[in-house]
Nucleic acid binder design. Structure first.
Lengths: 327, 327
DNA sequence: TTGAAAGCGATACCAC
DNA sequence: GTGGTATCGCTTTCAA
């Protein structure tokens, strides 16, 4: 910057002004500075810029992995909002482990991100409490943070599952399975609850014999489904707890003669071609709203924390409307 | 840091040492400093840290959009390598426009990323030449950079298309279509060439009547396919130039009685269930190799630039082996 | 093994 | 409109 100032015959401060509050500088000076900057290939260093003010121009996002289209949709929505606000997105992945989460949170905070957005995977985010007090807002996406005051954006998990189950019941099903992996996360707990409530009707919601709550990513959905369909009183319909599980179930049912009905959670690219009914939601919108929440919180760290709940929508494409086998 | 130093009764420099070259400090001092740091919730500011040295701990990636699974696979592979090297990933998207590319490149360079990785979308990257000379290595992924010295990682586009075409020919096809959108990118030019060469046999490769090289993202693949199958001498097989187009073709063929054979470029999640033959490649590996190339170039900016070419693999799942209609 | 001083690239505050 | 000066949080000399 000093070089530019020298070449343009002004003070460094004026150069700085040209790149930040251009209207405070005379047109002639601006032109001279810009020319000098161009010649010297000068580009303001936004890192140094933010050294002073505290809040940087970056925002951190912690997700399980980028391969999962749900996560990448969230990232997309978020990135859109950020770029509108001149912020850039730092993405870090946890491989869906709690240790990974703490590790990358630490890294991102070292980078002084102006906000930390995350899809929590660990069971406890209290380790972030100090940071939050120090001024790094935390926004939880898809699942609320635990033991931490944080804004959050989630979806209507329970109601989505409730409606899916009810829809299957209206098509004559009564023996309905619920399969998911992982199971110990907020979204699945909620969805399971909605499923049970629908099945219970006015009675008391309780576990059913057709629930398969897996918690080991290594277990093959195909295997689980095969086993499930082989039990004495097999289900006539299946609800898959997330996109991954839904594809797994599809794979398991593939080629079967009289497949059970199927409704998946999360929409996916070829679901229309495959005729798969799903509980759909707008993951990009989640990212977008989370981004807006972050901008809000950066602007006013003292406001009330909010919990946004986004709707889900049942999309019927065929697989969810298959009647039960008349056995 | 000063506060920590005061509390631990040492100089700031010693605190710095504890967090960087711990072995140069006595064990007792280390402990005292760490305790003080913990009490004060001190976390080294890696932004300020890098203010001095030049190269920062971030690496920038410019991609078209995160929704495209190809891009996100590349990002995944890259992120893996970076986290092993203690670097974090800043992702910026261009919406697949050249202007977007320049804009976000500028932003990332302002952030002083230690390397700039990109899937070039514009037709000219010479605008980065200055930066490269100033010490920001540029790595092109999937497509070589134009008018710029840069390392790159690409795949065997031409050969992949060649083999797909040959495979269709071996199954009796002669009237083979090639559909893609966009068309004016390196990958498509190469694939088209492979397709033509295979069809030409020993003759001179030339355009065929079944090529549909679209360049408007708004045009619906379904429409293009319908039209293509309605011409006087319709193709009996189709090669789709990328994942998006492949799904589009699938959608168009869906429900048709005697669909043409189909081979797609890029594998996708449910391709096995849908029985779609594809030219597959390892996008994560591309990201990984690009990351390694970046680390290499950061360590030694003077080395020869490299061009890595990764193989493709034809996966036959049914759609590519349908024989031509005996019409 | 530890410390003092200068500086990285920019901005904020206060003069002129 | 423009220019000094201190400062942000840390690291790199060079000494002790």
């Amino acid at each position: 910057m000093d070089d530019v100032a020298r070449l343009a015959n002004v003070s460094p401060k004026t150069v700085s002004r040209v790149f930040t509050q251009r209207d405070l500088v005379s047109a002639a000076t601006v032109e001279r500075v810009l020319a000098a900057a161009k010649r010297l290939k000068f580009r303001p260093n936004s890192v140094a810029r933010n050294l002073r003010g505290g809040a940087s121009s970056t925002v951190g996002l912690i997700i399980g992995e980028m391969l999962n289209p749900f996560y990448s949709r969230v990232a997309t929505g978020l990135e859109k909002v950020l770029s509108e606000h001149g912020k850039t997105l730092i993405v870090a992945t946890t491989d869906d482990t709690a240790e990974g989460e703490e590790r990358v949170a630490d890294t991102l905070l070292s980078q002084r991100v102006s906000a930390l957005l995350m899809i929590p995977v660990g069971e406890d985010q209290s380790y972030l409490e100090g940071e939050r007090q120090l001024g790094s807002p935390v926004i939880a996406i898809d699942r609320p943070a635990r033991n931490l005051v944080a804004d959050s954006v989630v979806m209507e998990n329970r109601n989505g599952a409730f409606e899916a189950t009810r829809s299957l019941m209206e098509h004559g099903h009564r023996k309905i399975a619920y399969i998911c992996n992982p199971a110990n996360v907020y979204t699945q707990v909620e969805r399971l609850r909605g499923y049970r409530e629908a099945l219970a009707g006015t009675g008391k919601a309780a576990a059913t014999p057709w629930e398969r709550l897996i918690d080991d990513p290594a277990i093959d959905p195909v295997h689980v489904v095969s086993e499930l369909l082989d039990i004495a009183d097999p289900p006539t319909a299946i609800i898959a707890g997330n996109n991954r599980m839904c594809v797994g179930v599809l794979r398991a049912l593939h080629g079967k003669d009289n497949p059970p009905a199927l409704i998946g959670f999360d929409d996916f690219d070829t679901a229309d071609i495959l005729g798969v009914s799903v509980v759909s939601h707008d993951a990009m919108e989640m990212g977008r709203r989370a981004g807006e929440l972050a901008m809000e919180r950066i602007a006013d760290p003292t406001g009330f924390t909010q919990q946004l709940v986004l709707p889900t929508r049942l999309i019927l494409r065929g697989s969810g409307e298959r009647p039960p086998l008349a056995s």
